[in-house]
Deep mutational scan, measured.
Amino acid sequence: GTEIELESKNGQREHYTATSEDEARKIIEKAVRRGIKRIELRGASEQLIRDMQEIAKQIGLQYRTDGSL
């Protein structure tokens, strides 16, 4: 699965493990709508990382991946 670590603007951290790319995408989209400061992805697919970079650029988000592409 993909591990997703979120940090909201007030510094609250949340951790999710998505079993599918679809689920990961839903978690990320929800977080973005809620207003999130930072997202870290571990074990994400190349496609998901590309999507994440696109989203991050659009809304000026900090993100990090573990680089295991």
Rank of each mutant, 00 (worst) to 15 (best):
Q58P: 03
R42H: 10
H15E: 04
I4T: 00
I27A: 01
L41V: 14
H15G: 03
R50C: 07
R33L: 13
S8I: 12
I59V: 14
K37D: 05
R38H: 08
L69E: 10
S45I: 02
I27Q: 01
T65M: 06
R13N: 05
Q62K: 10
S8P: 04
T17D: 06
A24L: 06
L48R: 00
L6W: 13
A56G: 06
L6I: 15
D51W: 15
E54C: 09
K57E: 12
A24W: 02
L6A: 02
T19A: 13
E46W: 07
L41D: 00
I55A: 03
E40G: 07
R33W: 06
S8K: 08
I4F: 02
K37Y: 09
E54H: 06
G11S: 03
E23Q: 08
R42V: 08
L41C: 03
I28R: 00
M52A: 07
E5G: 08
G11P: 01
Q62G: 07
G35I: 01
Q62D: 14
L48N: 01
E54G: 06
A31K: 02
E23S: 05
Q53V: 14
R33E: 11
Y16N: 01
E3I: 10
I28A: 02
A44E: 01
I27F: 11
G35L: 02
E21P: 05
V32N: 00
K26A: 12
E40P: 00
Q62F: 10
R64T: 15
N10F: 08
A31Y: 06
D51F: 15
I59P: 02
E21I: 09
K37I: 14
E46P: 11
Q58W: 06
H15P: 01
Q12P: 04
S45W: 03
A24F: 05
D51N: 05
R34Y: 05
L48G: 00
L41R: 00
E14V: 08
T65C: 15
K37C: 14
A56T: 05
A31M: 05
K37W: 09
R25C: 03
G11A: 04
R25A: 03
L6S: 01
E7Y: 11
I39S: 00
L6R: 00
K9V: 13
R50M: 07
G1F: 13
M52E: 00
I59D: 05
G35F: 03
E46L: 10
N10G: 09
A18G: 04
I39G: 00
K57Y: 07
L41I: 13
D22M: 06
L41G: 01
Q53A: 11
E14D: 05
Y16E: 01
K30E: 14
E14A: 06
T2D: 02
E23K: 03
Y63H: 07
K26Y: 08
K57H: 12
E23Y: 04
G60F: 05
T19Q: 13
E46D: 09
R25P: 00
R38F: 15
H15L: 15
R38N: 04
S68P: 07
E14P: 01
R42A: 05
G1Y: 15
G11T: 01
L61D: 05
T17V: 13
L69Q: 07
K57F: 08
D51S: 07
G11D: 03
E21N: 06
T2F: 13
E14M: 11
T17E: 07
